[in-house]
Design a binder for these strands. Structure first.
Length: 446
DNA sequence: TGAAATGTTGGGGCG
DNA sequence: ACGCCCCAACATTTC
């Protein structure tokens, strides 16, 4: 029989509004799983409660001799797995964990000194040298049934959680995931290496939520890409991103404290603006709402709220602006992203934010500061990404769309944009903010 | 998986 | 023809 536990640790009904997009994706995926296995001779049993209590209880009720589960690698999932195993052992039930969240177990690779890697490039070399990614297992042809009367719950509806359905999210479930993979491989894949940074093009695979929830395993994606091509540039480039994902999971596995503390100790006392600082509050609100006056940043903020997804390049630019231009603690941005992202994953999200801030493992140096205008001009050259998410700027020509406050007044009036009324002036002057950050960082980081 | 400041070079306008 | 200057284009250094 197939059991899914709605554990309040990651799915508390009364707190589901804190992760509305992931709740939607998860429930859709559960429903799809339920429907997809109907012909296998059993069904999906959903129970609610703490895994450490309900799993042994279900095992007792059905007389199970063994329980199989995929391990979770982030700290609390890991602890949960440990406790469930302990509880089951007390009932003489075998507990077999298998890996699947990552392509190789997160502690697989070590440096010559036996230490966890701190730098991506050597990690990726070791991965290429030592890891043979196993092809995914075939789907089961049948599932053993279950006669016991179990205390199951129906798959919750979004409405019962007080969440409105968002039609703009990627659709959950394995079938939808496989279709996304197919569309990527048949479409933008072979231009991936040069289109992946283009915020205005559908150049990426959009599989992040599938990888997070397991509607597609990283191994499935790896194998599909491997069998599609050999030695091409797009393939190398894409597989490299999967190795980055692997690296991020490994980092958190070895250093659970990363969820609360920066990797680089020098950053622990970095003088970000206090959450109670009125200037900081204004900046924070503007960044969240998408009205900083930096079009790409505002586009990404609105895409996040509406689609639960942000293009990776836009994530990096927005993180750079929040931490460096606005001097706001990366952990607040990290939490905001985790709230809204459909692909919100503790390991990936944390690694991304620490990297962009410059406080992480193998992060970019603190003085590498993105210019939101020139980034926009480079990676959204026609301005279509901005036009899509910041419609009040849609009539501006590409020449000015990334710096509307600098546009000549006749251009602005022709486009129907009044700076300060229809669209804000930049909340900070980037050049000044950059200099200030460099000074602050130099002092704080030595 | 930066950007800005600074340095170098070379073409062309001009006295 | 020549030197001078300007500046674009590119390279290097710095943060």
């Amino acid at each position: 029989m197939l059991l899914f536990v709605l554990d309040p640790y990651f799915f508390a009904a009364e707190r589901a509004q804190e992760f509305p997009h992931r709740a939607q994706f998860l429930l859709e995926s559960l429903k799809a799983l339920h429907d997809n296995i109907a012909h296998l001779g059993s069904r999906l049993f959903v129970v609610a409660g703490r895994s450490v209590e309900v799993v042994p209880e279900v095992a007792r009720q059905v007389g199970a001799k063994r329980v199989l589960a995929q391990s979770w690698t982030e700290p609390f999932g890991r602890e949960r797995d440990r406790r469930v195993g302990e509880a089951l052992a007390g009932h003489d039930v075998a507990f077999e964990l298998f890996d699947g969240e990552t392509m190789a177990p997160p502690a697989s690779l070590r440096t010559g000194q036996g230490e966890p890697f701190r730098v991506f490039t050597p990690f990726s070399r070791a991965f290429a040298r030592e890891i043979r990614v196993a092809p995914p297992l075939p789907a089961p042809r049948a599932l053993p049934g279950c006669d016991a009367e179990l205390d199951t719950v129906p798959i919750p509806t979004l409405a019962s959680l007080g969440i409105a359905h968002n039609p703009r999210l990627v659709v959950g479930g394995e079938r939808a995931a496989r279709q996304r993979l197919r569309e990527f491989l048949d479409g933008p894949a072979d231009a991936y290496h040069h289109d992946r940074d283009r915020m205005d093009r559908p150049g990426t695979s959009r599989l992040s939520a599938d990888l997070k929830f397991g509607t597609l395993s990283a191994r499935s994606v790896w194998s599909a890409v491997q069998s599609k091509a050999t030695g091409t540039e797009w393939q190398r480039s894409y597989l490299n991103e999967l190795v980055w994902r692997e690296f991020s999971h490994a980092l958190l596995w070895d250093r659970p404290s990363l969820l609360t503390e920066p990797f680089r100790p020098a950053w622990q006392k970095f003088p970000f603006l206090s959450p109670t600082d009125p200037v900081g509050q204004r900046r924070w609100q503007a960044w969240c709402d998408g009205r900083t006056g930096f079009p790409v940043v505002d586009a990404s903020a609105r895409q996040l709220l509406q689609e639960g997804f942000v293009h990776n390049r836009a994530r990096m630019i927005s993180a750079s602006v929040l931490t460096k231009d606005l001097l706001i603690d990366y952990r607040r941005g990290e939490a905001h992203y985790l709230h809204w992202l459909v692909d919100g994953d503790w390991a990936q999200n944390n690694a991304g934010w620490q990297w962009a801030t410059g406080c992480g493992c193998d992060a970019q140096p603190y003085f590498r500061i993105f210019n939101p205008t020139s980034q926009g001009e480079r990676f959204d050259p026609d301005g279509d990404y901005v036009r899509r998410w910041v419609p009040e700027l849609a009539a501006l020509p590409a020449r000015w769309i990334h710096a509307p406050h600098n546009a000549p007044s006749d251009v602005l009036s022709k486009a129907g944009v009044r700076i300060g009324t229809d669209y804000p002036a930049p909340i900070v002057d980037h050049a000044e903010a950059r200099n200030l950050f460099l000074r602050v960082a130099k002092t704080a980081l030595g």
